[in-house]
Computed example of a mutant assay.
Amino acid sequence: MNADQRQPFLTVVKGAPTDEELAALVTVLSAAASQQTGPASAGPLNRWGRPTDLHRQAWGMPTSYIHG
């Protein structure tokens, strides 16, 4: 299939956009298509201050060490 037989990348079906508007739209769509879909950082997660930590039992209390 040569360049003349390919389907158009973008088709305007309503309105009359200017050349600048079409260029901006193509730029945004191209940038979105080239972005990675994976996580931004592969480093360790920082879970400091999570709300679930407030529900944990406090250590060092007399009831923390129950022996038999």
Rank of each mutant, 00 (worst) to 15 (best):
G43A: 13
N46C: 09
T11I: 14
G15N: 04
T18Y: 08
P39W: 01
R56Y: 00
A23P: 02
R47H: 01
H55E: 05
Q35S: 13
T63S: 13
Q5Y: 03
D19E: 14
A31I: 09
T52D: 00
M1F: 12
V13E: 10
L54T: 00
A33L: 14
P51N: 01
V26L: 12
A23Y: 03
E20H: 11
R47P: 00
M61S: 13
Q5K: 07
T18L: 10
P62Y: 09
F9P: 00
L10S: 05
Q5F: 03
H55I: 02
A24W: 07
Q7K: 07
A58S: 12
P39M: 02
R50E: 08
R50G: 02
L54D: 01
Y65M: 05
T11D: 04
G60W: 08
S34T: 11
V28G: 06
S30N: 13
L10G: 04
Q36S: 12
A32T: 09
A3C: 04
V26Y: 05
A23H: 08
W48S: 15
A31Q: 15
G60M: 08
L25H: 11
T63I: 06
Q57K: 10
Q36T: 07
I66M: 12
H67K: 10
A33F: 11
T52G: 00
G49K: 00
S64Y: 10
V12F: 07
L54R: 00
R50C: 01
N2F: 13
S64H: 15
A31P: 05
G43N: 06
G43D: 14
N46P: 04
R56V: 02
P8K: 12
V12D: 06
Q35L: 14
Q35P: 05
R6S: 08
S34P: 03
H55L: 10
N2S: 14
S41H: 12
R47T: 02
M61Y: 06
A24N: 15
A33Q: 13
G49C: 03
P51D: 02
A58D: 11
H55Y: 03
Q57L: 07
S64M: 04
A42L: 06
D19N: 11
Q7S: 04
P39I: 02
P62G: 08
W59K: 10
G38Q: 05
M1V: 13
F9L: 04
K14Q: 14
A32K: 09
P51K: 01
W59G: 08
E21N: 07
G60K: 04
P62N: 07
Q36K: 05
L29I: 12
M1K: 09
L10W: 08
Y65P: 01
G60H: 09
L22F: 11
N2C: 12
D53I: 00
N2P: 14
P44W: 03
S64P: 03
L25F: 10
L54N: 00
T63D: 15
T63E: 15
H67T: 13
P39V: 05
T37E: 10
G49L: 03
F9N: 02
Q57R: 12
G38N: 09
P17K: 02
A16I: 06
K14T: 04
D19S: 11
A42N: 08
T11V: 15
A16N: 14
R47C: 01
V13Q: 11
L29G: 06
L10C: 11
E20G: 12
P17H: 01
S30E: 14
